[in-house]
Each structure stands twice: as C-alpha cells, then as structure tokens.
Design a protein around this nucleic acid. Structure first.
Length: 301
DNA sequence: AGTAGCACCTGATTGC
DNA sequence: TGCAATCAGGTGCTAC
C-alpha cells in the first residue's frame, strides 16, 4: 500500500503485532526481497532472535527498530519498503502454507500472531537490516529540529507531510526547482509521503496545474499545494487509506475507503466536481496524471 | 548540479 | 481462443 496514509495503516497494524515481540526466525522465499544483502542466509542470521522495540515510519519508508546484540555499538533497524504492491499479513497458524506472493515469512514469539508474512506481487518492495545513523534536517524541511536517528538508506528522505516537526513553510524549498510542481511533490527529499494519487489530488484541490514549473509559482500557490497535500492525506488516513483492489490491504487483509473520496485520480473524462468540465489525463514524467483543464491552468516558464 | 529517462518485476486488462 | 501490447499507487541509478 504505497503512499503515506496506506503505509501508516500498515505501521499501526504491525505495531500491535510486533512491538515487544521476538522474531524467532525469518524464512526468505524470494531472494530479491532481501537484495541488498549478500545472501538470504545473511538476512535471516541478522534478524533471528531479535526483539522489535518500535515500528517507525517516515513518508513511505518504514522500519522496525531491533534489540541490540552484544557486539553492536550502533542501533540496528529492519527497513521495510512496500514498493508498488507490498503488504504485511498476520496469521495465527504457522502451519498454514504461505500465499503465492509471500516473499518472506517472519516467525514470531510473544505476539498475538504466529507469523507475519511479507507479500509483494511486483517485487519492488524490500526488507533490509542496516545501521541507524544520526541526521540533522537541513534546508526548509525541518530547520532547527532535533537530530533524528534514521536507517542509513532513509537518511536522505525529508520529513513527511504529517510530521509535526515538518517546518510550516517547507514548501519554500520547492522554489529551488524548475521541474513541474508534480515532479517536485513526488521528490521524497523535499517533503516525503506524497505519491502519484495524492499528488494529483493535492494539485486539484489547490487548483494548480501539475506541469507548472515549481519556480514559476507564487508562494501563495505553493502554500495551497502544501496544505492540500497534508489535508488530503490526513483525510485518507482517517478512513483507512485508498485501495482499488485486494493488492492494497492492512495486516488483517482489510481495504481502505478513500477511493470514493478521490476527486481527480482515475476520473479522466468525468466532470470536475467544482466546474463540470471533463477531467483530462496524460502521462507526465512517466506517471498517469489527472487534472481539470479549467480549474488548473498551466503557467508557462 | 540538476534533470530526464530508464530499469527493476508480475499480473490483470485491452486490443487485434 | 491466443497472444502481444499496455498499464499499474515507487525508487534509484545512469547519462545528459
């Protein structure tokens, strides 16, 4: 479940099953799920008999903080990215045959679940054990905020749209780019968590054309996009996220309900709910992009 | 340095 | 019915 609200739904589910539980054993069923490691055996060795002390998220990146071993002097985390189709599913019966798309099975102790399976049809997701590193936010995304410990591979990711420590004028950093505003919204180094669906939704709500160069927009327009992104993601989280099919579900296999709240994404040809003009769709930067040609006028450079 | 383009995958759907 | 083309919600590497 790829964007911030969906990942947060998963994080909450994982927290209830994994916090203070022990990973007794990991069974890697598809090597590429742990492709950053030398081998699946190495991954399995690194997670075995560890306790999960916290389940944390920044944007679409999530990690499980793990209890330290005697020979380790820095904190270690299991980073889990869902990619396009990753899911975690909890099951009571460890004897149950894993699903076809199960890429890794975690056997648990001290949990209400016997196993936690990582499913991933398209295999863009991954699991990775790595050290945590101290980071200090630079730029407008988090001026003056405290040091955050992040997994090494997450160190370059900006604070996310629902992070209380995100600077209220972080959108000012968007003006440094000449790319279209949608590309900048999708750039996880500025403000993280926004993906293709919510980028289109935020731009529709803010009445800004996705291809308007970020450095051509007024601060007022950028502020509208920023606020719209936070609002739409909070609203989606409140109803359990967006899902169109069973590819995107929480740890109990349930779907979210925000699909019915979408105003732009997936509505090409349908009337704009503000002005009635049919919405348009085009491929921009390789991603399907939806907008209202009347409400969202493109600004030239 | 900043940006565009492509690669990484599987499976469902569409069109001939 | 069969098969190829297209499309899908993400990220990171490479080449301009």
């Amino acid at each position: 479940m790829p964007e911030l609200p969906e990942v947060e739904v998963v994080r909450r589910g994982l927290e209830t099953f994994l916090k203070d539980a022990t990973i007794t054993r990991a069974e890697v069923r598809r090597d590429s799920a742990v492709r950053h490691h030398f081998s699946p055996d190495e991954f399995a060795f690194l997670v075995a008999d560890r306790r999960v002390t916290a389940v944390v998220r920044r944007g679409k990146f999530m990690w499980w903080e793990l209890s330290a071993r005697d020979d380790e002097d820095t904190p270690v985390a299991l980073s889990a990215h869902l990619g396009m189709s990753g899911q975690f599913r909890a099951f009571d019966d460890a004897g149950q045959e894993p699903h076809k798309h199960c890429r890794t099975r975690f056997h648990l102790g001290g949990s209400d679940a016997a196993v936690m399976d990582f499913h991933d049809q398209r295999t863009f997701g991954y699991l990775r054990v790595e050290p945590m590193v101290p980071t200090v936010d630079g730029g407008a995304a988090g001026q003056g905020t405290p040091t955050a410990w992040l997994p090494q591979s997450v160190a370059h990711i900006g604070r996310d749209a629902l992070d209380p420590l995100l600077s209220p004028d972080a959108y000012r950093s968007w003006r440094s780019s000449s790319r279209g505003i949608k590309q900048v919204l999708l750039d996880q180094q500025f403000i993280s968590g926004v993906g293709n669906i919510y980028a289109d939704e935020a731009l529709w709500a803010a009445r800004v054309h996705p291809q308007s160069p970020a450095n051509s927009l007024s601060f007022q327009a950028l502020a509208r996009v920023f606020e719209a992104a936070r609002t739409v993601m909070a609203a989606a989280l409140a109803v359990g996220g967006t899902s169109f099919d069973d590819l995107y579900v929480n740890v109990n296999g349930e779907s979210g309900y925000f699909a019915r709240g979408l105003e732009a994404y997936g509505r090409a040809g349908e009337p704009c709910s503000r002005c009635g003009v049919p919405l348009e769709k085009a491929t921009i930067g390789g991603r399907g992009t939806h907008w209202c040609p009347r409400c969202q006028r493109r600004i030239a450079r």
